[in-house]
């Protein structure tokens, strides 16, 4: 499997001609519509489902040619989507809600991460197993994430004034070096880095303590939803197929990611561990029943409640399931 994927990648690398020929493949003669998907971070297994959709021709068969635009620390997702540079962006419910509050006409079309990946990471000798444990401890985090911590505290009756907040970069080193007792981070990145370096850590997933918030949400503008439905349906359909394939074979998805981005500085142990840890965040009984990316009025209501605590009052209009319904109807 691994070798066949790499071979395929290399044959693609030989030239665009290969793509063109492949497009003539299984009975699809339509012209390819070129669109872009704005990712929320640097290339990694975090987006492996999209790479599978691309490499296996899921999008091509649906008449789409999708460019996957890398994100980064200074690459917000919302501006390219508002500008039309990207058809769809991968955001999160809180980011989308604040953008909408600032006048951006976004809607959430699908939810890749059903469970929010935010977590409190600590070391076993001084663990944070539940929110109450944070009291009296030093937490390291970028201060821009203050509202997240505030909400977690409110949800669990924790006195935030009893937590010492140490502004740090998004980096596990302060925890390992003993400068802080715990970190506010994603369960799929800094804890994985520590695991790979042989440092055992305790990860308290905030989603288990009431922090219900959709993450890796697919967003598009009202205008796109009104005028480019077919493209949106095709894009999300390819995503759904890609992520289902990802779930079926994490090893293959990881190897594909590594082969596709040889210059990204990715290492296999980290990527495979991250791939494993994001599965329970992305797939649930709900997605098993209805399909990848699904959300319900109930989960939306829970999100609205969390967003309210974050200081972002929104209505259910922020979500639009019609595209996803078309994706999973056929």
């Amino acid at each position: 499997m691994t070798t066949s994927l790499i071979t395929r990648r290399h044959s693609l690398g030989l030239g665009l001609g290969a793509l063109g020929l492949a497009a003539l493949g299984p009975g699809v003669a339509r012209a390819q519509t070129r669109v872009a998907l704005q990712l929320s971070w640097l290339h990694s297994v975090q987006f492996a489902g999209s790479y599978i959709a691309d490499e296996r021709g899921f999008w091509r068969d649906l008449g789409l040619s999708v460019r996957l635009d890398s994100g980064g620390p200074n690459a917000p997702v919302e501006p390219p989507v508002v500008s039309g540079t990207a058809l769809v962006g991968i955001s999160a419910a809180d980011y989308t809600a604040s953008a909408v509050a600032q006048g951006a006409p976004f809607r959430i079309l699908g939810v890749a991460m059903q469970n929010n990946p935010f977590a409190i990471a600590s070391l076993p000798g001084n663990p944070v197993n539940e929110p109450k444990d944070m009291e009296g401890k030093r937490i390291g985090m970028p201060t821009a994430n203050m509202p997240v911590l505030q909400t977690l505290c409110t949800l669990n009756d924790v006195d935030i004034n009893r937590i010492e907040i140490i502004p740090t970069q998004y980096d596990a080193a302060p925890l390992v070096a003993g400068q802080v007792d715990c970190l506010l981070c994603w369960s799929t990145d800094l804890p994985v880095a520590m695991y790979v370096r042989g440092i055992e850590s305790v990860t308290m997933l905030m989603a288990d303590f009431g922090y219900v918030l959709h993450s890796q949400t697919y967003i598009a503008t009202d205008d796109t939803i009104a005028n480019r439905r077919a493209d949106l349906v095709a894009l999300l359909k390819g995503e759904a197929m890609g992520w289902d394939a990802y779930r079926a074979d994490l090893e293959a998805a990881t190897d594909l990611t590594l082969a596709r981005f040889p210059d990204a500085g990715l290492d296999r142990p980290t990527q495979i561990e991250q791939a494993r840890r994001q599965v329970p965040l992305m797939f649930s009984d709900l997605t098993d029943a209805h399909g990848f990316g699904w959300f319900t009025e109930e989960t939306v209501a829970q999100n609205i409640e969390t967003l309210g605590l974050l200081g972002m009052p929104v209505t259910a209009d922020l979500w639009d399931r019609s595209i996803l319904e078309e994706v999973h109807a056929g």
């Binding site: 620390p73 200074n74 998004y170 880095a193 980290t270």
Partner: peptide
């Protein structure tokens, strides 16, 4: 390097972000 923080897919800056998040102090 800082410019690569705006969404580049390769370069020293990309590797710096990756190495710092990956706790790869040698890198």
């Amino acid at each position: 390097m800082i410019g690569e923080f705006t969404g580049a897919d390769r370069g020293l800056g990309v590797l710096v972000i990756r190495a710092m998040r990956g706790l790869d102090v040698t890198a």
